[in-house]
Design a binder for these strands. Structure first.
Length: 276
DNA sequence: GTCCATGTTCTTTA
DNA sequence: CTAAAGAACATGGA
């Protein structure tokens, strides 16, 4: 469910409330969402103060005052919200963090359990995660795309190639860059990679500003829905007219994922260079 | 009952 | 061996 903009929004909405607070108690921590299984949780966090909260890829990283850190991944259906202690505990609540003397607590709910809590220790090293899309350079992106012959959409979904993009923002970014999702990654021209890099950054920034996309049940740390779904150009708009050229938005399966594109704005082959 | 879902990882195939 | 495709994971909504 949550991609970079949603995860960033969760970070932004919980940080002011929980940073600097000592964790007094942890309740209802489901065992099967901890990696490595049953790492010293909750002992590793009890009594520790949250020094900072940040985002890396789609991960919400908690740095503790003892130098250790862990992260929460929301998977497909995860929620991380600040709620009054007195609120009824929702079904599929896996972890509740209580803070000394505070009437609110942080709750991790994830019905499908694709998410989890992962221990990083004192290294803070994130492996199997590529460069951040908001800061990646054109040259770096180009070099990494040259290494694979997969469809550009599949390449952009590969978190090791570039981190943080998911099904929504890949489709939206490719539309903004006027590149068809089935194009071979290694065959994009440098000009197309330039457009793609700019389109990714622009799309993500706008989505963050809108609080992310709430298609189904995504909410931020305060329980509020995002509004970027209203600005989608292709995702979830199959059968509707393209907002640029009125051509019907197509939907098909690529790499096992539903894929949306405008066949006119995003030609399946790179348009030939016109000369005069 | 069926199909689909904003993600990731493991297995199978080529 | 590697790259790429496919299956699996678990739950709920249409």
């Amino acid at each position: 469910m949550p991609e970079l903009p949603e995860v960033q929004t969760v970070v932004d909405t919980i940080a002011p409330t929980v940073v600097g607070r000592p964790i007094r108690r942890c309740r209802r921590s489901a065992f099967d969402i901890l990696t490595p299984a049953g790492f010293d949780f909750p002992n590793a966090v009890l009594g520790r103060t949250i020094a900072s909260i940040s985002r890396r890829a789609k991960r919400i990283v908690f740095r503790l005052d003892d130098g250790n850190s862990f992260f929460i991944h929301l998977g497909m259906s995860g929620r991380l919200t600040i709620e009054p202690n007195s609120n009824p505990v929702a079904k599929h609540t896996h972890a509740v963090f209580e803070f000394a003397g505070e009437p609110f607590e942080l709750r991790f709910v994830d019905p499908r359990r694709f998410g989890g809590i992962f221990w990083l220790g004192d290294s803070g090293v994130h492996d199997s995660v590529g460069p951040e899309p908001l800061t990646i350079g054109v040259r770096t992106l180009h070099r990494r795309l040259l290494r694979t012959n997969r469809a550009i959409k599949s390449a952009l979904l590969d978190q090791k190639l570039i981190a943080g993009l998911g099904n929504i923002y890949v489709d939206e970014s490719l539309f903004a860059a006027r590149i068809h999702p089935t194009r071979v990654a290694s065959e994009l021209s440098i000009d197309e990679v330039r457009r793609l890099s700019a389109a990714i950054k622009r799309t993500l920034r706008r989505a963050i500003a809108a609080g992310g996309s709430s298609l189904r049940d995504y909410v931020d740390g305060a329980g509020r829905r995002g509004t970027f779904q209203n600005a989608h150009r292709v995702f979830g708009r199959s059968g509707e007219p393209c907002r640029t050229c009125r051509t019907t938005i197509e939907k098909f399966t690529l790499g096992g994922r539903s894929t949306h594109a405008c066949p006119a704005c995003q030609p399946p082959q790179e348009p030939p260079v016109t000369r005069n």
